[in-house]
Design a protein around this nucleic acid. Structure first.
Lengths: 144, 144
DNA sequence: ATAATTTCGGATAATTTTGTCCGAAATAAA
DNA sequence: TTTATTTCGGACAAAATTATCCGAAATTAT
């Protein structure tokens, strides 16, 4: 569904969000450890998310990544997915046809549109805050 | 959503199905031409589908690929997807966690389950016959 | 029989994605 | 001010996916 980079990106962001609920900043190392991902590759992804303004980074000792509490319900899953995988998952044709549209639809156009729209709606309406809270209550997990 | 191989596989199968509606057998070359895909790569995919028993191949002059009419509403999109991409799209965790399940769910487990189930239901209930008919009436298209 | 056509199967190459390495820049603590 | 820690950024490497090439096998038509 998503690229590996995107999966790591979502997992990392959720861990940062959960820690940020308690005002704690987390280092790259800790993040990679907690979400069980390759350190250097995760670094690249966090850089993308930082540049996109979804998370904040601080260099130097006691540095790391964080997310302002007030941003947490503004930021949606769709923001992360868009930053890393782009919008092809919403916009692209299910069969990969570059010029598929309602006027000249591919054979699965309508059926796919339904599923894709549900996916988009879900991603656009699911906030970091909501998911981080579930993590904090240990109702959900990020490892293994 | 799907791999390129799977997209080609679906498109190729639909073209074969459409031609088979009229009892016509189609060659690899024609298929690749009609669905605008790389010939040799398409050959590999058709081999997979043949081995899986979804399509039939005939060697030699006037050979090619075909699908028995009576199989067309038995064969569903899900059969093609399963043959080429496997079942990770239905079964895998949205965040890539190997051990995500209802007991120890990832933060997006329930929300993804809904979308994935809708996708699965759609693929499992969409037959080749239905899609090939739409193609034949030129209500839908496989190119560009 | 022979030749032509078509799929099959293995090897190989190109591209994309995933992952690693290392030095530079920033910053906090000693 | 020096040192240690941490992110940043570029180059590089490995793995997976996508794509090509070519000879072999099968089969039809001549």
């Amino acid at each position: 569904m998503f690229s590996k980079a995107c999966e790591y990106g979502i997992r990392a962001t959720l861990h940062i969000a959960q820690k940020s609920l308690h005002g704690e900043r987390v280092s790259l190392k800790e993040i990679a450890g907690e979400i069980d991902s390759p350190v250097a590759f995760t670094a690249k992804i966090l850089q993308q998310l930082t540049r996109a303004g979804l998370i904040t980074s601080v260099k130097g000792p006691s540095g790391g990544f964080q997310i302002a509490k007030k941003d947490m319900d503004r930021i949606k899953l769709s923001d992360i997915v868009n930053t890393i995988d782009g919008d092809s998952i919403y916009k692209g044709c299910g069969l990969g046809l570059p010029a598929c549209n309602a006027k000249k639809p591919c054979p699965v156009h309508d059926k796919f549109a339904l599923v894709r729209n549900e996916l988009r709606t879900m991603l656009e309406n699911t906030s970091l805050y909501e998911l981080a809270t579930g993590l904090d209550l240990e109702l959900t997990y990020l490892k293994r």
